[in-house]
Design a protein around this nucleic acid. Structure first.
Length: 453
RNA sequence: GGCGCGAUAGCAAAGCGGUUAUGCCGCGGCCUGCAAAGCCGUUUAGUCCGGUUCGACUCCGGAUCGCGCCUCCA
C-alpha cells in the first residue's frame, strides 16, 4: 500500500488513484534558457524514480513533464545572445535531454511546451474573466483576482492577509490586490506575442501548467510534483486558476522535493551557487550522481560537495563490486524477503535510503554466498531505481576522455605479471604504485589481475 | 514580521516507544608475496530542558540553533 506525503494535507496519505490501476502525473519541468543544474537533476531523478516505482507496482502511468519555452528570462537571454528564441530554447532542450539521459532518467510520456498551448491558455483566461475571477487592467495586462477564490493559500498554508502584510510584496498600481498575479502580459517592443481578445501579448507563467495539465491529463488528476520552491506561488496559483475555471478539484496529491544545497544554502540561479549537471559529470560518473540523489529522502535537503560525491562513489562501488564477474540477468523474486523489505521502504513515501539499505544487505549476502539468485535480485531491485544497469566492469573502468588509456593500463598489468612471475615484487609493486598514482587500482585474484578507476 | 521544516555517531543518512539500520572513514583479525576487494569483529549517536511511560533517539511541551517560503527559481 503506497503512501505519499501530500503537501496539501501535510501528512502521508494512502495513495488511491482516481481510476483503479491508472495514474496521471504532472511535474513542473524546466525553463529552458540555460543548462540544467543539480537542482533540476534532483527533480528529474526523483520523479523518474516515482514513475518507475508506480509502473513496477503494476500501475498504468501517464507522466507529463512540461517545458517552459516562453518567459522573461528566455527573452532576455535570447536578446543578450543575439539569438532567435526558438534556437535558444531548442539548444537547451537538447542539452537537457542529454543530461537527463546520462542520469538514467527515462523520457516522460508527454513533454508539452508552453508555446504549443497558447490557444488553450487564452481559452482558460477567457473563462476566468467570464466567471469574474480575472480582469484586464488599465495597462492591458490580465490579472487573476486572488480574492475571488475562496481557498487561495490552501496549498502553501498562507493567508491573503498575511501575504499582503508581508514586507516583500511589491506594489503594482494596476492590480486590484497586491497579490493578484498576471495571466496575460500585453506586448512590449521587440517581444514575441500572440493575438488575443486582450490585444497582442503573451501568457504569464502559472497559466501554462493549468492548461497543459488539463489538456493531457484532464481537469482533475492524481499527482502533481515539482521542487519545493514552486509550492508558492506557482502551484498555489495553478490551483486557483484551475479550480476557479473548471469548478472541480485540480489535483489529489501534491509532491514537492527538497532543495539541493551548497554549504547549507539553497542552490539557485539567483544566488549563483549552482553547479550544472554537465559540470559535475566531468568529474563524476552520472550513475554516482543519481545514486547520490537517491541516497537521501526526496523531501530532505541534499547537500552537494565533492566529499559527498566521493562517498557516494565508494558506496555504489560496493554494490558493483559484489556483482563483479557474475553474469546474471536482473530478475525480481517477489516472494523473497528482500523484495518485501524493498517494497515496504519505497511504499512509505518513496523511502529510497531505506530501499538502498536493502541492496547493501543483498550485496553482503551475495559476497558471502555467491548465490546467483541473490545477484539477480540485487540487480533487479536496483534496476527499479534505475541503478546497476551496467556491467561492473563498465562502471569500474569508466573514465573521462582525459584519463589513462586502457591499452596502456593492460600493458602495465602484463609487465607487472611478468615481474611477479620472476618474483620481482619490488618491480611489481612499483608498477602498481605508479598506476595507483594515476588513479588506477589493481586487484589480484585467483584468475589474474583486474583493475578499476 | 507571517508561515513552515529540520536538529541522529568522524562524515552521510533511515527506521523504530524496549531487540545490529545502511554506506563511507577509523581500528583489530582472516585472506594475500605485499596490497586491493571480500569476510568476521569493533570504536564513535540522537542539541538542551522539562513532561508522559515500567521504559523515549522515537510521543508531548518549551528553549536554542540551522534552513526554507512569503520576489524569478527545481
Amino acid at each position: 500500500m503506497l503512501k505519499i506525503y501530500n503537501t496539501l494535507a501535510r501528512e502521508k496519505q494512502t495513495f488511491v488513484p482516481m481510476v483503479a490501476g491508472k495514474v496521471s502525473m504532472y511535474v513542473c519541468g524546466m525553463t529552458v534558457y540555460d543548462f540544467c543544474h543539480l537542482g533540476h537533476a534532483r527533480v528529474m531523478v526523483v520523479f523518474d524514480m516515482v514513475s518507475r516505482w508506480l509502473r513496477a507496482s503494476g500501475l498504468d502511468v501517464i507522466y507529463v513533464r512540461n517545458i517552459t519555452d516562453i518567459d522573461d528570462k528566455i527573452i532576455k537571454r535570447a536578446r543578450e545572445n543575439g539569438e532567435d528564441i526558438s534556437v535558444l530554447t531548442q539548444r537547451f532542450i537538447d542539452a537537457m535531454d542529454e543530461d537527463s539521459a546520462l542520469l538514467g532518467v527515462l523520457r516522460p510520456d508527454i513533454e508539452p511546451r508552453a508555446t504549443e498551448h497558447v490557444l488553450g491558455m487564452i481559452e482558460m483566461i477567457s473563462t476566468l474573466i467570464e466567471k469574474s475571477h480575472a480582469y484586464q487592467a488599465e495597462n492591458g495586462d490580465v490579472f487573476y483576482a486572488v480574492n475571488s477564490f475562496q481557498n487561495y493559500g490552501k496549498l502553501s498554508g498562507k493567508s491573503l492577509e498575511d501575504l499582503r502584510a508581508g514586507e516583500r510584496v511589491e506594489v503594482d498600481t494596476f492590480k486590484r490586490d497586491p497579490m493578484d498575479f498576471v495571466l496575460w502580459k500585453s506586448v512590449k517592443p521587440n517581444e514575441p506575442s500572440w493575438d488575443s481578445p486582450w490585444g497582442k501579448g503573451r501568457p504569464g507563467w502559472h497559466i501554462e501548467c493549468s492548461v497543459m495539465g488539463a489538456c493531457h491529463l484532464g481537469k482533475h488528476f492524481d499527482i502533481h510534483g515539482g521542487g519545493q520552491d514552486l509550492q508558492f506561488p506557482h502551484h498555489e496559483n495553478e490551483i486557483a486558476q484551475s479550480e476557479a475555471a473548471n469548478d472541480c478539484t485540480f489535483v489529489n496529491y501534491w509532491m514537492h522535493n527538497g532543495f539541493v544545497r551548497v554549504d547549507d544554502e539553497k542552490m539557485s540561479k539567483s544566488l549563483g551557487n549552482f553547479f550544472t549537471i554537465r559540470e559535475v559529470l566531468k568529474k563524476y560518473d552520472a550513475e554516482v550522481v543519481r545514486f547520490f540523489i537517491l541516497r537521501a529522502h526526496y523531501r530532505s535537503p541534499l547537500n552537494y560537495s565533492d566529499k559527498h560525491l566521493d562517498d557516494a562513489k565508494q558506496a555504489l562501488s560496493r554494490l558493483y563490486t559484489a556483482l563483479r564477474g557474475i553474469d546474471v540477468v536482473a530478475k525480481v523474486d517477489k516472494s523473497a524477503a528482500s523484495y518485501e523489505a524493498f517494497k515496504t521502504a519505497i511504499d512509505d513515501d518513496f523511502n529510497t535510503p531505506e530501499a538502498l539499505a536493502v541492496l547493501f544487505d543483498l550485496a553482503n549476502t551475495l559476497n558471502k554466498s555467491g548465490d546467483l539468485a541473490v545477484a539477480a535480485q540485487l540487480k533487479g531491485l536496483a534496476n527499479i531505481l534505475g541503478l546497476l544497469a551496467r556491467s561492473s566492469e563498465d562502471f569500474m573502468q569508466a573514465g573521462s576522455s582525459s584519463s589513462l588509456d586502457v591499452a596502456l593500463i593492460e600493458a602495465q598489468i602484463f609487465a607487472r605479471s611478468e615481474a611477479k612471475k620472476a618474483k620481482d615484487f619490488a618491480e611489481a609493486d612499483r608498477i602498481r604504485k605508479d598506476l595507483l598514482d594515476q588513479g588506477i587500482i589493481l586487484e589480484d585474484n585467483s584468475q589474474g589481475t583486474i583493475w578499476r578507476r
